[in-house]
Amino acid sequence: MTKMDIVESIFEKFGYSKKDVSEVVDAVFETIKETLERNEKIKVSGFGNFSVRQKRARRGRNPQTGEEITIEPRKVMTFKASQILKKAINS
């Protein structure tokens, strides 16, 4: 499933054009990205939580050359699925 399929299922419910629907869907994901960019958590009840975690610097190794490298501190995204989503997937 891609964004187009989501737009399609919204379009079937509304009188809005696909172009307008697509704009709203983009705005929703853009808002989520902006929120995470500010390191703020997003909670979508029934679906799950998106949050940002700070990772500390650590020693790593280039698996190809065996060379030791330092992995810089960085921030990564995590998604925690809600119980409802987990149950739905197993039903």
Partner: peptide, 29 residues
């Protein structure tokens, strides 16, 4: 209407995953 759209977005993603299909949103994940 936006509230309904947000609900449809997450419900349809749940449905897709339930049917075993993956969900790909370009630029998001």
């Amino acid at each position: 209407d936006i509230e309904t759209i947000v609900d449809i977005i997450f419900n349809s993603m749940t449905e897709s995953l339930r049917s075993g299909d993956k969900v790909e949103i370009r630029g998001f994940g």
